[in-house]
Design a protein around this nucleic acid. Structure first.
Lengths: 283, 283
DNA sequence: CAGAAAAATGTAAATTTATTTCATAATGAT
DNA sequence: ATCATTATGAAATAAATTTACATTTTTCTG
């Protein structure tokens, strides 16, 4: 797909003149996309028809079409990447880097998510008698957020970020209850124990964690999110953002499954907040 | 940068004919990048020079250059619109839409952020005797996350999602304390009161909120994040994600300001968690 | 609401750019 | 070495884009 890669690949199938064009293009593709066929021909010391033939050899309609492909390759070549924050970065720089890494990781997480699993999870959540969200540390924040969302749906929902409360809650769970356990590493001992306890009490255990971890092994369903490790500053960053987006997805799936009337209800919940707020006209 | 966004943004500054072109382009940008200026003009029922003028209005050199930009916009994984979830969406569809909107909104938020303000905020935070993070509802989650991050820095940091605790804490604040108030709408009455109380007690008040809101008016510094309203399902979605990324940025700025030795310390905090986790080799 | 000024749009010509045709040169196989 | 094949370029042609200018439409002013 990427035409620059294609050029590099097929370099040996090119003729002498074609190779000259290829080299000029690869040397500064960003200049080429703004050059006319005449300019490029001159730059490569070959004739214009040769450039044109070169373009066609790469399965494009002609020179302008080739430029289009090239432009797209360049745009694609620099997607959101995980750029690491550097000690001497200015506010401008680290701000840009953090936004970009977050987005790169979201893209990554999106690709790794299995929508069938999402569908099954939504099924289970809509049918649950009670939903519990447990996490520790940064994942506690995600659990907190999940409670905030699902609470609006008027389903029994609890959230604990305390190990003992989590254990007690797990022991008290029963068939029909859904326990959602959140842990990026999937190696937090106490959370794995909670999973085991909940399972022993016939609750359904959904894990928002990485594949193949001790926690994953104890779960009925695993929603796994691939995210590049947040090694930079020893703080969870992208992983929890991806988890939160996953919560949004589950919550959205939940409301869609519940139908229109249910969504009217959501509006009421939101409207109920009005009296606690300053009116827009007050401003 | 993204020319499709730009078109959507400047739609109202266009003349009648220009709008016609814009609509044709937005309806099927992928067709347009392969069309000649004549074809596009015909499609939009206007003359060729008008298309040309349209291109120049968007700061491109002309039609071919415009097509290049358009092609790049399309190639870029960047979603150009906030696609709204629809009632009949499959899991696949709403998952994709939520990821895309989240990313579109992050892109938007990034652009709206002022790095000078970030710099000043980081200054204040590094110099603070005590840092408090307050929010309610979805913003409480953000405050919770902030506490989690700043706690690792070994600075006195508190977080409350309870109105009374927030008030009491604000009343007890003094010069040198920094109070960070989080509210997307900036209209939550009790939080505005907290801002006033904190200010009366000489604390520095940083608002993570929208410009021109009652809360913003009470703050010493306002970190504003533009995000498209989350109207779909009456739940805060993109706004809190953007706020969390902002927290990441502030935390990162904080650690950078503190220097290398400080960051070694962070590693120790992280390492201290090891005993609570299953080892990798256990798996 | 007339009428002038400004802005928007279109026509047609000019220009630029890309492509085709065909002649010539290079390459390679026998 | 010679013929066939392939590669290349010059010039002609075709296509596309841009410019210049005329016409229409809109907006503002009195």
């Amino acid at each position: 797909m990427n035409i620059l890669e294609k050029i590099a690949n097929e370099l040996d199938t090119f003729s002498k003149s074609e190779r000259k064009v290829a080299e000029v293009i690869m040397a500064s593709p960003n200049t080429v996309i703004h050059a006319s066929i005449a300019a490029l021909a001159k730059q490569a010391n070959i004739s214009e028809p040769t450039v044109n033939r070169f373009c066609r050899r790469l399965d494009t309609k002609g020179y302008p079409d080739f430029k289009l492909h090239l432009a797209q390759s360049l745009a694609n070549g620099t997607p959101y990447v995980n750029r690491h924050v550097d000690e001497n970065d200015t506010a401008d720089e680290y701000t840009a880097k953090i936004f970009e890494s977050t987005m790169a990781n979201l893209e990554m997480a999106r690709k790794s998510l299995d929508t069938n699993t999402i569908n099954r999870s939504v099924d289970l959540l809509t049918q649950a008698n009670k939903i519990s969200f447990f996490g520790l540390g940064a994942s506690a924040v995600v659990a907190h957020d999940a409670q905030n969302k699902f609470f609006r749906f008027n389903v029994p929902v609890v959230y604990f970020d305390d190990i003992l409360m989590q254990r007690m809650s797990a022991i008290n769970s029963r068939q029909g209850d859904v326990v959602v356990l959140i842990s990026h590493t999937g190696r937090t001992k106490s959370l794995v124990e909670v999973a085991t306890l909940a399972k022993e009490n016939d609750a359904t255990v959904i894990g928002i964690t990485s594949e193949g971890t001790p926690l994953a092994k104890e779960c009925s369903i695993v929603l796994s999110l691939d995210v590049a490790e947040d090694t930079d500053l020893y703080m969870p960053m992208a992983s929890r953002i991806a988890q939160l987006v996953l919560i949004d997805i589950l919550a959205t799936g939940f409301t869609l499954r519940r139908g229109t009337k249910f969504r009217d209800n959501l509006k009421k919940v939101k409207d109920s907040l009005r009296s606690s707020r300053f009116d827009r006209k007050d401003v």
